[in-house]
Structure formats: structure tokens, C-alpha cells
Design a protein around this nucleic acid. Sequence first.
DNA 1: GCAATAGTGTCTTTTAGACACTATCTG
DNA 2: CAGATAGTGTCTAAAAGACACTATTGC
Lengths: 231, 231
Amino acid sequence: MSDHRQNIIVTTDVVLFTIKDDRLHVLLHQRPNEPCKGEWALPGGYIRTNEDKGAEAAAERIMIEKIGLPTQMGGTPAFYMEQLSTWSGPDRDKRGFSVSVVFLILVPEAYLQTTFGHGIALLPVDELPDLAFDHGDMVAAAMKRLRGKSTYSSLPAMLLPETFTMADLQKAYEIATGAKLNTSAFTRKIMALDMIVDTGEVYRGPGARGTRPAKLWRLADGRVTFDRTLA
Amino acid sequence: MSDHRQNIIVTTDVVLFTIKDDRLHVLLHQRPNEPCKGEWALPGGYIRTNEDKGAEAAAERIMIEKIGLPTQMGGTPAFYMEQLSTWSGPDRDKRGFSVSVVFLILVPEAYLQTTFGHGIALLPVDELPDLAFDHGDMVAAAMKRLRGKSTYSSLPAMLLPETFTMADLQKAYEIATGAKLNTSAFTRKIMALDMIVDTGEVYRGPGARGTRPAKLWRLADGRVTFDRTLA
DNA sequence: GCAATAGTGTCTTTTAGACACTATCTG
DNA sequence: CAGATAGTGTCTAAAAGACACTATTGC
């Protein structure tokens, strides 16, 4: 085989989605340094070969350190994360041939509320500015993945807080898939899948509004994919 | 940010599937060199930063050069290929921290018939030996991807020659999804999707066998995913 | 009771599965 | 014509969509 000294720059970037004001938002920051200083970009960073167990661990580290995402006991990430894809090439970054392993993270908005200021922002995905590098492609691919997988999995629920109403859940599916759903069919399907569990609690709306309170549900453990489509 | 000199080994590996004798097979070779000399492994190689436009181009180059996969005019690959995922970590390869961008290739068996000998083989996926590195995980992930996507796309048709009978197509779906399908429902669905086009030709079986000849079909261009499931 | 939202029941339409029936070939 | 596989039609069962109806709250 050829020379091992490839000198390739290896980074990880993260497309973090959440739902805010009933719209899908993505987490971006304005780059403080060159290259592309000042442009909006995805959060990310170098993989540390002496510290990170792999690209996923690097991405977790970066999101916990820089964005302040929550962890459970032992530092385990408390958010949904999956690998999206990898971008590579000689021209993506003018510093040289580079590889970026990109992850998709879905979190409830509440996980983010304490973390902001200094050039970090949630922007709605349908009103994005041009992004640095090929980050625009990455966001587009992430949206495609979310949209596709949402029709046959519980992914949209990862955008919600731990307890939620049926209306919240349906809204999350509508936002994630981009399709308007039929309420009775939606309820039937979610129930048939045993995807959620009744908490016994109810939600009475912001200030008492004189309506029937909605039951609060919680995701049943584990369930992630199913075999029929929703939208 | 930290030191740019990460010295990470960046390779690409390929999980190539085809259907042979009505079973799914994967292309493997016995490693001629250390590490893991003599063990079965996926074909792959280093990304060349001065030559390859990216990981996908590197994988194409390797498969065309080493395995002899066909190209169209201009060297464009004539086979189906998509990125599967990326594996990375300090311990995958004892030479150091390594990253491998893995691709899934689907080809008709006929594309492979001229290329063999010297430690390269098609092995049935349900009778694999232990593989080198983490290549066993890669094959498992590729099978999961194929299985999943096959229920809502024309992927299985990529395992067939350019023209095929309805029975061939159904068989390919059954092999790719692992599920037995209902013939009339399958036909109805494929037809409703306008996924295939009648070539006008027929197939009379290996030696005339005294049966009604089957129509030969061809994939309609482009169509890859649909919105209802098949299995 | 009224207004407002939550949640259920039921009728209709669509889609899937089972399986019998017709079609086209060879010897 | 018999036998074999290709391909279609039709009946039944299951699932989705539309939408009306009941339930529970605050005022």
C-alpha cells in the first residue's frame, strides 16, 4: 500500500435539531477564527487521537463541553445521537485534505435554554443563511434523514421533553415529516405500537384556559422503529 | 483549536453485495499483508490525498482497479453505491488511530464473473467466517441497511441484471428483505409505482422448458424510493 | 350552560393478502 | 392435451382517512 503519512485533517460536526415555537431549528455558531471567520457554521472540532474513543465520542465531548448538553450519571450523553454521514475531499477546507464525520442530534428545547450568548444561536431551518464550508449540505442531509426516518420510527419524540401530550407528539411528527397528519389515525397507530405510556399526569395549558386537560405521556423504553409508515 | 498534526490513518472499505444462487453474497479477500495477514477482510485501501476527490472516489477507484468493476464512458462507475457509515477509533488498527469510511455496493453477479482467483471470493452472508478488524460489524450494518431500505425503495433491483422477470424481481426483494412476499400484492405495488418498464422481450428459461415465457422488464430511470412499504 | 380543547367511535375508502382462475408455452 | 410456469381477477381482511360525537375543564 501507499505512504501512511496522509496528513488528513479529521474533524466532527454536529447537526443539532430542536423544535422551538413549533418550527424545526438548528444550532449554529459564528466562527470566531479563520477559516471562514464570522460565517455561520455547525458546531464541531478536531478528533483528539489521545483522548477520544472515536468520532462519536469526540462529538459528544464537544457538545457537552462547548454547548453544555446534559449528561446522565457517568457522563453518558442524555440526548439522541446518530451518525449521519461523512464528508471528505481536498477542497472542503483550505488547510488541506479533510474528513468530517457528521452526527445528527435531536434534543428538547429545554436542554438548551441555559447555554446561550456569544455567537451561538438556534435558527429556523427554513430561513438559514449561507453556511461555511459544506455545512449547508450537511444540514440538508440531516433534514432528509429526519424526514425519512420519522415516518417509521419514534425519532420525532426525541425532540420533545420527557412528558408530552398527544397533540405535542402529533405536532412533532408533522414538523419532522413535513406532512399534516390525521388525528384519529395517528392516535390509533401510536397506541397500536405501544410506543408511549400514560404518566397519570395531565397538562392544563399555559394558565387555566377552561378546556379539558390533556393526558401526559412518556416514551416507552427502547421502541424506535416500526414496520408501517405514518405519513 | 488543538494541534493539526493528528496523524490519523484514513481508509475506505467496501461491502459489496450480489445475489448468487438465490442467496446474498459478500465480496471478501484474504489479506496478503500484515496486519491480519491471511484473514478474510473487506476490500479497501488508503485514501490518496493527491488523487482522490473524496472517500467515495477512492472507493470507486479501488473497486475498479482491484476488483475490475465496470465503468461507463468517462470512467463513471456503472454500479450502485452509497455511503454506509464511518468507523473510527484508536484500537481498530494496531498501526494507530484510524478512520474508515465504508460504502455499500450492489451489483448483478454478472459484473463479477471475470475477476476472480487469487484470494478473492464471494461468500454467502449467512455462512461468513470471522473477519479481520471490525469488518464483521460493517457487514452486519450493511445488511441492516439493505434490509431496511429495501422495503421502501428499488434497491433490490440493483442486484439484478439490466433486464429481469417479475419472478426475479420478487426473489431479489425476498432475499434483500428476508421476508416472503405475496405475488399478486407485489405485482400490484410495483406496477402502481411505475418502477419498471416492459422491454417487449421475453425470457424462456434455461433451455426450453415448456412453460409460458416471462416478460423481461427494465428499471424505469431514477425511481429509487417510495412512500409505502413492501414487506 | 357555553366555549374551547381532548379524546373516541364509526362509516367509508384504500390497500394488502389469499387464492382461484386464465394464458402461453413445450413435447 | 398434459404439465409447467406466467400473469390476472376477485373475494376478504385490515388499515387509513374523514368527521361526527362524547368528555372535561374554566368561567
